[in-house]
Simulated assay, not measured.
Amino acid sequence: MQYFWAKAGLDFFIAFGVVLGGAMLAGIGSVLMLLPPVSMMLDTADRLKIWAIVAAVGGSIDPVRVIESNIAEGHLSPAAQQICFIIAAFLGAHLGTELVKLLCKGAA
């Protein structure tokens, strides 16, 4: 059970960090390229959201294979765990996107 919470927490924070870090670096890069940083940060956060989830849960199709193979064999617990990990990663990516929107709201 401790593994489950540790992995879910890491997936959350990895996805959160990918979105927040990517948006912040896009903002810095846009300033160096003389582009509007707020719009670049918002656009980057939205585009990175799905990739943050993929990166957090393993970066490949393996989590989907785990779900499929365990459901096919009748083992629902590992499949449910993988779905929970994906949900935790989604929440982290979504929170990161919302934080970027909140930070950019004051600058717009």
Rank of each mutant, 00 (worst) to 15 (best):
G59A: 06
N70V: 00
L48P: 01
E73C: 10
G58H: 00
G58P: 03
K49E: 11
H75A: 10
L76D: 11
V54H: 03
D46C: 10
I50G: 02
E73A: 15
D62W: 13
A72Q: 12
R47G: 06
I50C: 07
I53N: 02
R65S: 12
V57S: 02
A45F: 05
K49S: 09
V66H: 00
L76K: 14
D43Q: 11
R65Y: 15
H75Y: 10
V57P: 07
N70M: 04
S77C: 08
P63K: 00
R65A: 15
V57R: 01
R47F: 09
D62V: 15
L76P: 10
A45G: 05
A52D: 01
I53K: 04
A55M: 04
A52L: 05
A52K: 00
E68P: 06
V54D: 01
G58M: 00
D43T: 12
V54W: 03
A72M: 09
A45C: 02
A52M: 01
V64R: 02
R65M: 15
I71Y: 03
S69I: 13
V64I: 14
H75R: 15
N70L: 07
I50M: 03
A45H: 07
W51M: 09
S60H: 06
V64P: 03
A55L: 00
D43L: 14
V66M: 10
S69C: 09
D62I: 14
N70F: 05
I50P: 05
S69G: 05
A45M: 05
R65W: 13
R65K: 13
I61E: 03
W51G: 06
N70A: 08
A56M: 00
V64N: 07
V54G: 03
L76C: 12
I53W: 05
E73W: 07
A52E: 02
G59I: 00
V57L: 00
D62S: 14
K49Y: 02
I61F: 07
V57I: 10
V66Q: 09
V64D: 01
E68R: 12
S77D: 07
E68V: 15
G59D: 00
I67C: 08
N70P: 08
R65H: 13
A52V: 01
W51P: 02
G58Q: 03
A56S: 02
D43W: 08
R47Y: 08
L48H: 04
R47L: 13
A45P: 11
I61Q: 00
R47I: 09
R47V: 10
I50R: 08
K49P: 03
D43P: 06
S69D: 14
R65P: 08
L48N: 07
D43V: 13
L76V: 12
I71N: 06
I67G: 04
A52Q: 08
V57Y: 05
G74C: 07
K49F: 12
I61D: 01
A52T: 03
G59M: 03
S77I: 12
V66D: 04
